[in-house]
Design a protein around this nucleic acid. Sequence first.
DNA 1: TCCTGCTCATAAACCCAGCTTATGTCGCCA
DNA 2: TGGCGACATAAGCTGGGTTTATGAGCAGGA
Lengths: 309, 309
Amino acid sequence: MSRTEEQGEIPAGGSLAHRVPDLGGLELLLAVARLGSLGGAARELGITQPAASSRIRSMERQLGVALVDRSPRGSRLTDAGALVTDWARRIVEAAEAFDVGAQALRDRRDSRLRVAASMTIAEYLLPGWLLALRAQRPDTAVSLHAGNSTVVAERLLADEADLGFVEGLTVPTGLDSVVIAHDRLIVVTAPAHPWSRRRRSLAAEELASTPLILREKGSGTRQVLDAALGGLARPLIELSSTTAVKAAAVSGAGPAVLSELAVGEELAMRRLVRVPVEGVALARDLRAVWPTGHRPTGPARDLLSLTRG
Amino acid sequence: MSRTEEQGEIPAGGSLAHRVPDLGGLELLLAVARLGSLGGAARELGITQPAASSRIRSMERQLGVALVDRSPRGSRLTDAGALVTDWARRIVEAAEAFDVGAQALRDRRDSRLRVAASMTIAEYLLPGWLLALRAQRPDTAVSLHAGNSTVVAERLLADEADLGFVEGLTVPTGLDSVVIAHDRLIVVTAPAHPWSRRRRSLAAEELASTPLILREKGSGTRQVLDAALGGLARPLIELSSTTAVKAAAVSGAGPAVLSELAVGEELAMRRLVRVPVEGVALARDLRAVWPTGHRPTGPARDLLSLTRG
DNA sequence: TCCTGCTCATAAACCCAGCTTATGTCGCCA
DNA sequence: TGGCGACATAAGCTGGGTTTATGAGCAGGA
């Protein structure tokens, strides 16, 4: 059944980009899976049939796995191909989020909806919302500006943004708001850290007296933590991005305090472990905001209604 | 004719692959972010400094956004660049999962750990585990075979696999098992469906009497549903993959019943909405399995211990 | 039976993105 | 002021992916 063309050993070296097909190839694979035909997929992507054929073949060579069963009546995914296609879909979905985010990022003067958002929201939530928005209002051009609560408020009040999203404890003055979701700060450590095996919840004092990996003073995350502990948080290191904090925690530098949103992936993969905490108010609201009186209309209203659920 | 490639304006057409930098570029960007230097990143990836410089520049052109601030003393990410980098990281992480999965998929005779898993687990959970396993035992070669519970059992008993993962209601005879996680089937619809606005939970009879988008009879998912409803599930359509079911539900064909694991992304993006249900036992255990008496040792034990948490 | 229409495969020529090597410029520091 | 590190620019090469052109297998209808 399987042709014996595996004489050439797989190199297996190099970086990811050498072992993972490029986005074009993955899109092609998804199209083949959906349409059941190489030629059909080629047509959909605007390339010729031989190009599709050779591209799929080169992916199979690269991966060392047969992906599609060709027949004169069409092409069907192999069992392995189905699995690969599902994994590929994840990459393509992440790329779609990237794309819609990047599009929003290049400020277009002519965009119909100008959004200002805090970093955490822009990072983890907005691309998803924009994707959904595009699904139901494909022609809405969106521009995005990311910054802290103060910046968001300034842009809204200066009429440089139509809708804002903030995550602080308080709503900047001059703005109306709606709570659209809830977030919580959680304590995490690397699996090797002794706290990861705790069964009893951590008490507030214990948290306050332990040096932690933290965001810098002034960040939304840090504000909430300081407020919850009464200004007592003791930094082991202060870092200026969520990602840097995560990386430090994963590498075992110590316990970190981070938004639940930021560590979903890491928890699922057990690169980080959540430490239970009690007696500390680490919840915070995520809010949509707009200038007092100017209720969102048009595209802003569309986006807002997507975010509430 | 669309052959006039307009110069000047951003193309904005074409498929994802034309608007999203390739994996190599994204990896490079992450390296620049981490190291704070174009040349350093180039060294790490084994390319020359001019190559890195030009690649980053072409990404900036492609995205229409300045990503890094160059100075004679190094390079630092722009605000926009930091956001783009975070989105890029998601793509790269998905690519890592793809890579480790694909590596496991090409059956290597010499692999030290042979895993057999049900589709759902292989699709959603295994790549994460393998990534974690590689982090702590980098030299473990893993091979993966995906199939239903019966196939998993056969391979284990024929000594063609060292460790299995199944998701059914029952443990195949001849195997020992441990519960490693819990999964639940949930009812979902497109946001446009009337059920998406329900506030009261759905009762079992109502679920049983409504035609649903379902996996085919015999699939793990379907077995659990049929058992929970007493064999009464009424299919609107029967499809042979989780992905097909999701796609049908998203397109508004009707309500679907799916594993929680499979729809996390869709729920977060509001492409699907969860419908509350009560009085139906839709939970199921995910189990690691092995031949009775042969407790997992070596690499199998390492993997197993990663999955329990 | 043969023709027509679908499928995929193969071959040769082309083109461009990204690579390398070689060199230039700028700022900091001893 | 020379030296070192950073990034930029220029010119030439290479390879993967593309196109056009063609062939071959299978199905269904005249």
